[in-house]
């Protein structure tokens, strides 16, 4: 496949405001601007329209204002739960079993060529 969807995990993305702290003193004063929504949409590979940006910025601001309530809970010493059923290293026997044929795997492809997925150019002309 082509490029990967990038979610920033190291270093704050440009244009994103500093995080709100003081978690235990009260609700987060969350606010999300139109520019931030545009930036997030670009990170998520969504070519949103100007009209959508206007609508989404307002709606997301309201939603964030509400979900920021999680900050009211004193949970410093509480371990996080990523998954309700704790599991690790689930194995199954390493046995050969039928998989998809090449034809099946390509059956839903928007474009294919010579038995492979045909994808748009990933690297620039100069690369």
């Amino acid at each position: 496949m082509g490029t990967r969807l990038d979610v920033p995990t190291a270093g704050r993305a440009p244009g994103v405001a500093a995080p709100v702290i003081h978690l235990l003193e009260g609700p987060l004063s969350a606010a999300i601007t139109r520019d931030e929504v545009a930036h997030l949409a670009r990170l998520a590979r969504l070519a949103v329209t100007d009209a959508e940006l206007d609508v989404f910025a307002g709606q997301l601001d309201v939603i964030l204002g509400s979900v920021a309530r999680v900050g009211e809970v004193a949970a410093d010493d509480i371990p996080p739960t990523s998954h309700a059923v704790p599991l690790e290293n689930v194995y199954r026997p390493d046995e050969l079993r039928p998989g998809l044929s090449q034809e099946q795997a390509l059956s839903g492809a928007p474009a294919s060529e010579d038995g492979r997925f045909r994808v748009p150019q990933i690297l620039g002309e100069e690369a």
Partner: peptide, 9 residues
């Protein structure tokens, strides 16, 4: 978009 925000550094 909301999820991308919530996971942002």
């Amino acid at each position: 978009i909301l999820g991308t925000y919530a996971l942002s550094s």
